[in-house]
């Protein structure tokens, strides 16, 4: 369910009372113009699931903690704070859990700058008639010589 960020606390308390007592995961997505936080909840007795999602601004995003309802939120909130720079209100989640990055943006933000070799290959295009045999009668993946690379790697 999509909610507004100021309704978050009351929504999650209501869902917890309704039986969604199992927190599966907290994560976020950087949509370049906004952040979206996602809370995956589950009711273990019935198997019903609910995803609570709401938008946050890119600059100084804040969410209230839910650690008083879900103990599992402890490390997920710390990870969220570390990877997306989202401030967790109501608890100290500043201590880094997984890594120390040296850029100014948090690592899972799209604005995070990282060195080129780690950014993966440019898409390669196969020849159109990929599965037709070449001159030597070879098919498919053995036709390595027909792979064209649009842009060089790095």
């Amino acid at each position: 369910m999509k909610i507004k960020s100021d309704q978050f606390r009351e929504t999650i308390e209501r869902l917890h009372d309704e039986g969604y007592t199992y927190l599966v995961k907290i994560t976020a997505v950087d949509w370049k113009d906004r952040l979206e936080a996602l809370y995956f909840l589950r009711d273990l007795s019935t198997g019903k699931e609910e995803t609570v999602r709401f938008d946050l601004p890119l600059k100084a995003p804040k969410v209230p903690t839910i650690i008083h309802l879900y103990m599992a939120a402890d490390w997920y909130e710390r990870e969220l704070s570390e990877m997306f720079g989202i401030e967790i209100l109501g608890r100290d989640a500043k201590r880094l859990l997984l890594e120390k990055w040296d850029g100014k943006d948090p690592p899972l933000r799209k604005a995070f700058e990282w060195s080129k070799p780690y950014q993966g290959m440019e898409p390669v295009k196969f020849a159109e008639k990929y599965n037709e045999p070449d001159k030597k009668g070879k098919k498919g993946a053995s036709r390595q010589n027909v792979i064209k690379i649009d842009k060089p790697f790095m």
């Binding site: 880094l96 859990l97 997984l98 890594e99 690592p107 899972l108 995070f112 990282w114 780690y118 993966g120």
Partner: peptide, 11 residues
């Protein structure tokens, strides 16, 4: 934790 962090989600 974090000694083995490789940032797979980003990779």
């Amino acid at each position: 934790i974090g000694f083995l962090h490789r940032g797979v989600e980003k990779l």
